[in-house]
């Protein structure tokens, strides 16, 4: 039986940059929790966040949470990063490609990262997942299977160069990103 009710969220507002640490967008940074981490494939993740008019959300912030290259969250890799959006509304992360993650029951989840978006005008953050185009496990991923096929592409990043992946996030309107809640 629940005794308390979770505190209401309030927008992060326009001035969250007071707690900004731009280096957190590089999960492999020197001096950071993953310094010297040598496993897996180093990748760059980026994308543009746009609003219902297609205008870039230049004051948004994106948080990333992911498993290590073996799909483990607790084996030493610090899978958390935060990136502000630049003047074009783009976020940029440097990290390693996650491996397949154990799912519920006997399921296996395709490699993915969670992206949470916070911004002025978002009363609460919204969360989605970034999957990698061409992964065979995408075909059997239990979360992707819950997304209508016509919208599934909003969760799948495409390669733009070796080791570079991009996924744009549309907060509202045509091709609106699928957001997830638990």
């Amino acid at each position: 039986m629940s005794k308390l009710v979770a505190t209401a969220a309030q927008t992060i507002g326009p001035y969250w940059a007071l707690i900004e640490h731009p280096e957190w967008a590089d999960l492999l940074r020197a001096g950071g929790p993953n310094e010297g981490y040598a496993k897996g494939e180093r990748i760059a993740l980026s994308g543009q966040i746009t609003d219902g008019d297609g205008a870039p959300c230049v004051d948004a912030v994106v948080e990333l949470w992911q498993a290590d290259p073996e799909g483990d969250y607790e084996a030493g890799f610090h899978g958390y990063g935060r990136s502000r959006c630049d003047a074009e509304g783009r976020f940029h992360f440097t990290t390693v490609k996650p491996g397949p993650v154990k799912g519920r029951g006997n399921a296996t989840q395709a490699p993915h990262v969670t992206l949470s978006i916070f911004a002025r005008g978002l009363m609460n953050h919204v969360s989605t997942r970034l999957y990698f185009a061409g992964e065979p496990l995408n075909e059997t991923d239990p979360v992707l299977a819950q997304v209508p096929a016509a919208r599934r592409g909003t969760l799948v990043a495409r390669p733009t160069a070796p080791g570079a992946w991009t996924l744009d996030i549309r907060l509202q309107g045509d091709n609106e990103t699928v957001f997830l809640e638990v």
Binding site: D53, A119, Q172
Partner: peptide, 20 residues
């Protein structure tokens, strides 16, 4: 500021995995 930034589609509810 919410007018152009709130998603119009409902989020998809998923059962929590290790990720969440």
């Amino acid at each position: 500021s919410t007018h152009k930034r709130h998603p119009k589609q409902a989020p998809i509810r998923i059962a929590p995995t290790l990720t969440e």
